[in-house]
Amino acid sequence: MRAVRSADASPLAARAARAVLLARRALGTLAQIALLAGLALGCDWLSRRFALPLPGNVIGAIVLFALLSLGAVRLAWVERGSDLLLKHLSLFFVPAAVGVLKHRAALRPALLEIAIVLVVTTALTMLGTGLVAERLARAEGRGEAEDAEEDAEAP
């Protein structure tokens, strides 16, 4: 509201107000990412220290899910940072994927075998999951209406 009123007064003040608002949002998002990073680092340490059966970052996701479910962490505290990271998730593993080139000499003789494994197992997993879920979903036969309702409300 204040921004609208100052826009009437002077465009410069409006622009400044908008810039402050944007900077605040950006800082908030950064703080949220820092919170997620802290959780990841803490759980990484726990995983190493106690030789836990899960990688630290996966434990971090489970812990955050539990905290959200319990209401100890509010969705609004982490939502913007999370959405930003997940939207560009593939960017963060570009370097690792390029890193495969370090191993190209070792992989070259096995390229055909690798292709066979990837094609066959991906098709099997896709069909297995899809067919089992289709069977069960049809047997279940309910919940579709709730889903449709929920999806209609969503943006």
Partner: peptide, 21 residues
């Protein structure tokens, strides 16, 4: 850039929480 993979994995809790119903 790669260091952000840690917090990004933790962020996977959010879609799961949103779709809990």
């Amino acid at each position: 850039l790669s260091l952000l993979l840690g917090p990004a994995t933790v962020a996977l809790a959010i879609p799961l929480h949103r779709e809990r119903a």
